[in-house]
Simulated scan of single mutants.
Amino acid sequence: MTEVIDGEAVAAAIRSGVSDCVETLTASGVRPGLATVLMSDDPASETYVSMKQRDCEEVGIEGFHVEIDPDAPASELYDTIDDLNDREDVSGILVQLPVPDHVDKRTVLRRVAPEKDVDGFHPENVGRLVAGDARFKPCTPHGVQKLLDAYDIETEGADAVVVGRSDIVGKPMANLLIQKAPGGNATTTVCHSRTRNLEEKVGSADIVVAAAGIPGFVDGSMLKEGATVIDVGINKVDADTEKGYELVGDVDYDSASEVAGAITPVPGGVGPMTRAMLLYNTVKAAGLQHDVDVDLP
């Protein structure tokens, strides 16, 4: 029987642990705070930010939200980030991506103070991750690590394949899997749109992390019997539903679940973990900034 990895349950456990950390910080006179910045009228981005603010409220993190007109000059966003960097009540800053075309994304990522970069995208934090001395692990890859650990899926010595090479998921996921540390020590291959013999490489993997952004890109015929399949994708496809669409992953769930030993569903797999790890990073940031030890879950 294929084991379905319940991201909602693992995320709930993480949030409970984060809530305990908030109590520790509060007892020391510290209230962690997360600032979200939205410069978009994209409904999906608005929904994501709203969910993150609700998550903060649930665990006791103070939430701050700033909305900027998408047509405003880039300098308005940069100045907002500078102001948030200077605020003592803001532990972490998240600028919801994507930003408008006239705003340089790399400048945005560099503008956030590294110690408040709870996404883990600042070049300093990326470098620390690669060096094996991470301040903040990016939320989605770290969430995947937590899922594997929660289900006792051994990474040490395993053959892992990451399908996708994005800065947000693919690259940091591969880096975490190869680290000489718990949750790492895997022999890791990164595949992408130019990879030759993709089926052969995926078919040799004990662990497959699909993060290509293509619906149903990985199917059961590509997998080794008993492989662990982690589906990071969230894609809207047309469907005969009330909304006119449904959410599917980068893995063809029906065929993959007949072969895999363990698999994450979409939704309900990696998605909840990404949000939980943002709270985790925010609490960690507050502890580091105020020199308070917190027992992170």
Rank of each mutant, 00 (worst) to 15 (best):
R275C: 00
R165N: 05
K171H: 09
R194C: 00
Q179N: 04
D101C: 01
G170P: 08
V90P: 11
G249M: 03
V259Y: 13
V162A: 03
G249K: 01
R135W: 04
D250N: 05
Q179E: 15
A13V: 01
T195R: 07
G249P: 04
K171Y: 05
V232G: 00
T188H: 09
L38A: 06
A211F: 06
I153F: 12
P138G: 01
L177E: 02
V4A: 01
Q96L: 14
G120K: 03
K180I: 00
A27S: 15
F121Q: 01
V126W: 03
V144I: 15
L147V: 06
Q145L: 14
Q145V: 04
D117T: 07
T228Q: 08
D206Q: 11
V118F: 08
N235V: 06
L176G: 06
R194W: 02
I5V: 12
I81Y: 13
D149I: 00
G220D: 14
D41Y: 11
G143T: 03
C191E: 11
L247A: 02
D82W: 12
E115W: 09
D231S: 00
D291M: 02
G33Y: 09
T189E: 14
L109K: 07
L177H: 05
V218L: 12
K105L: 13
T274Y: 11
L94P: 07
T282E: 11
A13W: 00
A205W: 14
A285S: 14
I168V: 15
P272G: 03
M173C: 08
E225N: 12
K180F: 02
G184C: 10
H142F: 12
C21L: 10
A286F: 12
A227M: 10
R128D: 07
G203C: 09
V10F: 02
V229N: 01
G184W: 13
K116N: 04
L129P: 02
G249W: 02
P43W: 11
G261C: 10
A72G: 05
D104C: 10
T26V: 08
I14N: 02
S221M: 07
A44K: 06
T36A: 10
S257Y: 04
S75D: 15
G269E: 15
F64P: 01
A260W: 14
V161H: 09
L176A: 12
Y151S: 10
P138C: 02
E225T: 10
E225Y: 03
M273W: 07
D82N: 14
I81V: 14
A134F: 07
D89Q: 14
I214R: 05
D240P: 03
E258Q: 12
D240M: 11
I81F: 09
E115P: 00
E57I: 08
L94S: 03
G226P: 05
V266Q: 04
P98G: 09
L77G: 07
E200F: 01
G183Q: 12
A134L: 03
V294P: 09
T195G: 04
V202C: 04
R111H: 11
G63N: 10
T188L: 05
I68S: 04
G184I: 12
G233M: 07
L129M: 10
T189V: 15
C191S: 12
F217C: 02
P172A: 06
G60A: 13
D41Q: 13
K105H: 01
S50K: 14
G220Q: 11
V208A: 03
M39E: 07
V112I: 15
T241W: 08
V190Q: 08
E154G: 06
V59C: 04
K116F: 11
G157N: 13
V30M: 05
D231Y: 00
V99R: 08
